[in-house]
């Protein structure tokens, strides 16, 4: 428990400092450095393949993988798989947030309930979603419902723990002042605790998003196409047939790009919604 909480607690500061830095004039630098690192790595991999340091059957050439990735982008079936993964991610994340945030508020505001549920939570949390794939597929049958369930099971923890950490972090003076104006405790949770905890919650959601993509792909990979389309199912199919490493790596490449794109989407939304938080850190820290 404390582990997740610490990560969550530290992360809002970390991400936001990077975010504010990106808005200053020198913003291009970290990006350029990151991109240069990727390019150098890919060039090295390409050179290693061409020089025979790494056998081409073990690792296809970078150029071949990238060429295949470009082809995949025009492949209707693959795009349907990509779309299905995004859909499962969106459904899973919607439920994760809709359930995780209120639950976190409840547990955060009522320490009694938190203590009472600790044992069951500590039992459930370490069970990896992947271990539940078979059970859930037997219970729910294949399809989006199953993917979403597994995503929620794996992704809800960072949202839950970060919400609780955010509630714990609310300034008691802020709450007391609010109550002194005659507001009810519920009003105080809604008007003070929730906005105050928002940066923590946002970090939890971004952590959850990464987990959600991994889980959707893993589920698809384990069940194969029976569970409907998805990047995982696509990779499973490719590896069971010809075992064409190039196409598997090309699909993996798109999976990575997808993860990056969804994270950028969430970061952008977070920066827009929590502008006060980012500007404030930019000015004081």
């Amino acid at each position: 428990m404390s582990h997740t909480t610490v990560t969550g607690g530290a992360a809002p500061g970390g991400t936001t400092r990077a975010a504010t830095r990106a808005r200053r004039p020198a913003r291009a630098l970290p990006w350029a450095r990151g991109a240069a690192g990727v390019v150098v790595f890919l060039l090295l991999a390409e050179a290693a393949g061409r020089l025979g340091v790494i056998s081409r059957s073990a690792l296809p050439l970078t150029s071949a993988v990238l060429a295949r990735a470009v082809l995949l982008a025009g492949n209707g079936r693959f795009l349907a798989d990509l779309g299905a993964t995004v859909e499962a991610w969106a459904a899973g994340m919607a439920i994760t947030v809709a359930a995780g945030v209120p639950l976190g508020l409840l547990l955060g505001a009522l320490p009694g309930v938190r203590v009472a549920t600790r044992a069951i939570v500590e039992f459930l949390r370490p069970i990896p979603s992947v271990a539940l794939i078979l059970l859930v597929s037997l219970l729910l049958g294949p399809g989006l419902r199953m993917s979403a369930t597994l995503i929620v099971y794996g992704a809800i923890w960072p949202v839950l723990y970060n919400t609780i950490a955010g509630i714990d972090d609310v300034d008691p003076v802020a709450k007391e002042t609010h109550r002194a104006f005659g507001f009810s405790r519920l009003d105080t949770i809604r008007m003070v605790s929730l906005p105050s905890a928002a940066p923590f919650i946002a970090t939890g959601i971004r952590l959850a998003s990464a987990v959600a993509i991994i889980l959707d792909i893993a589920t698809g990979y384990v069940t194969g196409p029976i569970n409907g389309p998805g990047i995982g199912a696509y990779i499973a199919q490719q590896s069971s047939g010809t075992s064409d490493l190039t196409v598997i790596l090309a699909a993996t490449f798109w999976a990575g790009i997808l993860g990056l794109a969804l994270d950028l989407l969430l970061t952008g939304a977070q920066r827009r919604l929590l502008r006060w938080h980012h500007t404030r850190l930019g000015e004081t820290g």
Partner: peptide
């Protein structure tokens, strides 16, 4: 908390809402 009451608590910096 009675009606018609307002407080200014000790630590003003923490009683204002940064958002």
């Amino acid at each position: 908390v009675p009606d018609g009451l307002a407080v200014v608590l000790q630590d003003y910096g923490r009683s204002l809402y940064p958002w």
